[in-house]
């Protein structure tokens, strides 16, 4: 089943195109990583999927419904980011109880376990938490809600490295016990790559690629250098993504498996820079 379907999605913020003709499909029960530079359109896409924002043009379907202002999409989706606010009148414990009242699949046992593990005080108020602790608390809500579509937009903002690790562990463990569709957007791709099944790269509001992460790791390479040499070499390759830099400087990602060692030698001899998958992604994000 397709959880998310976007077709020719466009979102304008004033005169700026935040999403530009973006199409993608996400199938059920996968952990998908969403990567891209700041301002690439990651958050815009996620907020449209969550039903917060209205698309300017194109089509978006979540669980086969238009997400904007849709109660059933809202009930089956949870969107976690660092802008989340909970009422100041409620303590953290009360917030968990309230969230439990709302979400039908809520796992209170897990919520309290994580709550204690990260040593929260039940009398604390969300507003008074540090940035990192806010993120950690939001994450607890996000995981415990057991929503069929769980979206984390930069969930680890402000978290310590150790807490980030614990978070990913907790998320994966719960995913194994309760498989569901999860979208993670993050700047720390190297931290989440083990968790992911698929990865989507968006840039300037457009989708550059959407591929299984193992395939990407195995096969993607980045090339940067003289435009003519590269285009000559990759003419018959499956190019995942290509950008034009200044002047003759061109940059593209191709599938390595289609590149013979002879071609690689030739690339190196002609002064084209060659990146592994990791640097490739880093160069993109």
């Amino acid at each position: 089943m397709n959880v998310i379907e976007c077709h020719a999605l466009i979102k304008n913020h004033g005169s700026r195109k935040a999403l530009n003709n973006l199409s993608l499909t996400i199938t059920e029960n996968k952990i998908t990583g969403l990567i891209g530079r700041n301002g690439a359109g990651k958050t815009t896409l996620l907020k449209i999927i969550a039903g917060y924002w209205r698309e300017t043009a194109g089509e978006v379907k979540v669980f086969s419904n238009k997400p904007f202002n849709n109660l059933s999409v809202s009930a089956n989706t949870i969107f976690i980011d660092d802008q989340m606010n909970f009422p100041t009148a409620l303590t953290l414990k009360q917030v968990l109880e309230e969230a439990g009242n709302f979400y039908p699949n809520w796992d209170m046992e897990l919520a309290l376990k994580l709550f204690n593990y990260f040593s929260f005080d039940s009398r604390q108020v969300h507003n008074n938490l540090s940035k990192g602790n806010k993120s950690t608390f939001n994450m607890i809500v996000g995981i415990s809600a057991h929503c069929p579509l769980t979206i984390f937009d930069e969930p680890t903002t402000g978290m310590d490295a150790a807490v980030r690790k614990d978070f990913y562990r907790a998320l994966l463990k719960d995913y194994l016990a309760h498989p569901r569709s999860i979208i993670l957007s993050s700047h720390y791709l190297d931290e989440i790559e083990d968790l992911l099944e698929d990865v989507i790269l968006i840039e300037n509001g457009e989708k550059y690629f959407h591929t299984p992460i193992e395939e990407l790791k195995e096969t993607a390479i980045g090339l940067s250098g003289d435009k003519e040499i590269i285009t000559g070499l990759v003419a018959d390759q499956d190019v995942l993504y290509r950008t034009n830099g200044e002047g003759n400087h061109s940059y593209s990602v191709v599938l390595k498996k289609d590149l013979s060692s002879k071609q690689i030698e030739k690339l190196r001899d002609s002064g084209v820079e060659y990146h592994q998958y990791h640097q490739t992604i880093c160069a993109c994000t």
Binding site: K30, I31, R169, L172, L176, D194, L195, E197, P212, E214
Partner: peptide, 8 residues
């Protein structure tokens, strides 16, 4: 065991 995606 290895903290990886089950598909992997």
């Amino acid at each position: 065991l290895f903290n990886i995606n089950p598909a992997t």
